[in-house]
């Protein structure tokens, strides 16, 4: 495997930055990586849909929330650990994804983008209100002793559970990469993403690709919803902020660039952890998050114009 020369300076800068953070506050590096894993794992399914179906799904965070509630309900009703409840939740999310696509998204694929945005925004509100009606706004959180798992190195103790998000993000990225580059259906999906009309001409069933990819994305979001609720409290509006962050991350990485999401989330996660690590600066973390995104998109636009 040959390393692209252009990447080497970025790798050097990245390693130097990580070393500097580790020297300043080792826990900032740990928590930054964990946070990056969470963002990446939630953003990857959104990137999949955006890259192939070309839909900006503003109900992405709400789908995550629905999966979290489904996991909570199944886990409570059957006395299951959320990691086990995840299996039936995947089936529930597959049905939900299929229905959302067939009943709504399918009919707006050729509509102006604004209509698609309004549609998915409407789906987001509908899901939030439905969950509010069923569960009220009262916050729920299952106590799971393993989420407090910790490791001590010298005087420093830190939580290790959140590394599951890092593992999940890497697993999703690798699995999707294999699926999209090595399987017949995956290759067809990439072709549809690049040129749907051309793909249709060569005999690819574009509608089938769309429905499968959208449903797969909802299933992946569902898996993350199940894991998300092990760590975070859930309430009907819990997913909203993640839609915006994930969309920004996807835009930063480049449409459909799944491995780019891993790098982007690492930069953003570390930046947030560093800002939070400076006392009195936590309010700046969102500003830095979006400034970084604006900066990266701006630089890329400038480069493209030069070419």
């Amino acid at each position: 495997m040959r390393l692209n020369r252009k990447v080497i300076p970025w790798i050097v800068i990245g390693v130097a930055a990580a070393a500097a953070i580790a020297a300043w506050k080792p826990t900032a590096l740990i928590y930054g990586v964990q946070r990056a894993g969470l963002y990446a794992a939630i953003a990857i399914p959104m990137a999949l849909v955006l890259g192939i179906v070309h839909i900006v799904n503003l109900s992405h965070g709400e789908t995550l929330m629905v999966a979290a509630y489904a996991t909570y309900t199944i886990a409570q009703a059957l006395g299951l650990d959320p990691w086990l409840a995840l299996v039936p939740v995947m089936a529930v999310m597959a049905i939900l994804g299929y229905l959302i696509f067939q009943l709504t998204i399918k009919h707006t694929l050729k509509a102006p983008e604004l209509n698609q945005l309004i549609l998915t925004f409407g789906i987001a509100i509908t899901l939030t209100q439905l969950v509010t009606l069923l569960y009220t706004t009262q916050t729920r959180k299952m106590h799971l002793s393993y989420v407090s798992a910790s490791l001590s190195i010298g005087e420093t103790s830190f939580g290790v559970y959140d590394f599951v998000f890092v593992a999940m993000a890497i697993a999703m990225a690798v699995a999707l990469n294999v699926f999209l580059t090595k399987t017949r259906f995956g290759k067809a999906a990439v072709a549809v993403g690049q040129n749907p009309r051309g793909a249709a001409i060569v005999g690819i069933d574009v509608q089938k690709v769309y429905v499968v990819i959208f449903t797969l994305s909802v299933i992946l979001t569902g898996i993350m919803g199940s894991l998300f609720m092990t760590r975070q409290s859930i309430f009907p509006s819990v997913g909203g902020p993640y839609t915006m962050k994930c969309f920004s991350l996807v835009a930063m990485a480049g449409i459909g660039n799944i491995s780019g999401i891993l790098y982007g989330s690492l930069v953003l996660g570390l930046a947030e952890a560093v800002i939070n690590g400076i006392k009195g600066m936590s309010g700046w973390s969102n500003i830095v998050f979006f400034l970084l995104i604006i900066g990266v998109i701006g630089v890329r636009a400038f480069k493209e114009r030069k070419i």
Partner: peptide
């Protein structure tokens, strides 16, 4: 940043 506002990391 409160979990209610999209946060939820209290480590700092």
């Amino acid at each position: 940043k409160s979990a209610a506002m999209g946060g939820g990391d209290y480590t700092a």
